[in-house]
């Protein structure tokens, strides 16, 4: 049943998010073409008229700003659409069907989480592609901006040839990086879901306001718990070991990995907590109007 739930959640998100993704790419292509036209104009006009140059320059700057704002707006709207699906499918009229399907509450929540996570990764990918199109094609007189490509390839080469990193590091870094991104995306989504669920509990009239308020409440409570735990752990850790041991026995990147692993574990622990609190409320205190 979970597979079927995911299928419908995924489809519903695709309906609204895919056009947005293609819109972002189209916007980037559009701005890129305008840049090319501007370069063409500059090449042929040969400073014919200062006034025209100024007008073109201003228009172009404005377009660039709007293009950038458009991308930012698309990113915000994509989050809004993901949360809207959650809200409408659970707490509005659609909820009458969602909660009378023969599925477990945890299945409903898990399906929303998985489909939202996948879609937030897809939209991020489209955002990267949109920016890359502009950087590679839109920022130079040549068809392709070779400088930008050179810079990327240099960073890439440096990464692969730095004496600081060993084979072990090249295996661990992608794993840690992937886990870090995934755990933080999941944590964020579950926090927002929980805020919406709580928002629906605290206020019947001002659900959105309630959700926003709950977001800050939950976030603050979580931060207090995490920082308290960190202080206690550090304190306990310092009591346990000699001052110099941890730093001397863990050379190179290991200390970074330990630090990042702790971050992943904390994030996962928060996610689990958000999930089960949310499930408990949906199962025991669901009161659809």
């Amino acid at each position: 049943m979970l597979g079927k739930l995911i299928k419908y959640d995924f489809k519903a998100l695709k309906k609204t998010l895919l056009p947005l993704c293609f819109g972002a790419v189209a916007l980037s292509v559009f701005v890129t073409i305008l840049m090319k036209l501007f370069y063409l104009y500059q090449d042929y006009s040969q400073n014919l008229s200062r006034v025209l140059d100024d007008i073109f320059g201003t228009v172009l700057t404005l377009l660039l700003i709007f293009g950038f704002l458009g991308l930012v707006a698309a990113a915000i709207v994509s989050w809004f659409l993901i949360l809207k699906r959650y809200y409408q499918n659970l707490f509005k009229d659609d909820g009458y069907l969602t909660f009378t399907l023969p599925v477990k509450t945890s299945g409903i929540l898990l399906s929303k989480l998985i489909s939202s996570t996948i879609w937030s990764l897809i939209t991020s990918l489209f955002a990267i592609v949109s920016i890359a199109i502009f950087v590679v094609f839109g920022t130079s007189r040549q068809f392709i901006n070779m400088d930008a490509i050179d810079t990327f390839s240099r960073i890439w080469e440096t990464y692969w040839s730095t004496p600081l990193l060993t084979l072990k590091d090249y295996i661990i870094i992608p794993i840690i990086f992937t886990l870090l991104v995934l755990s933080s995306v999941v944590q964020n989504i579950l926090l927002l879901f929980l805020a919406i669920t709580l928002g629906n509990q605290v206020s019947r009239k001002h659900k959105i306001l309630g959700s926003v308020g709950m977001y800050f409440v939950v976030n603050t409570v979580a931060s207090i718990i995490v920082s308290t735990a960190m202080i206690l752990l550090t304190y306990a850790g310092l009591e346990q070991i000699d001052n110099d041991s941890i730093f001397s026995i863990t050379p190179g990147m290991d200390i970074v990995y330990i630090y990042l692993s702790v971050a992943i574990v904390i994030s996962t622990a928060l996610s689990v907590a958000y999930f089960f609190v949310n499930k408990y409320i949906l199962k025991n205190h669901l009161n659809l109007e």
Binding site: N89, D93, D94, Y96, L97, T100, L101, P102, V103
Partner: peptide
């Protein structure tokens, strides 16, 4: 429970289908 939901057919007094 989810078990009873598998043999209870419910028609609410509102539109509960995703209208898209």
């Amino acid at each position: 429970s989810e078990k009873t939901k598998s043999f209870v057919s419910y028609l609410p007094e509102r539109n509960y289908l995703d209208d898209t």
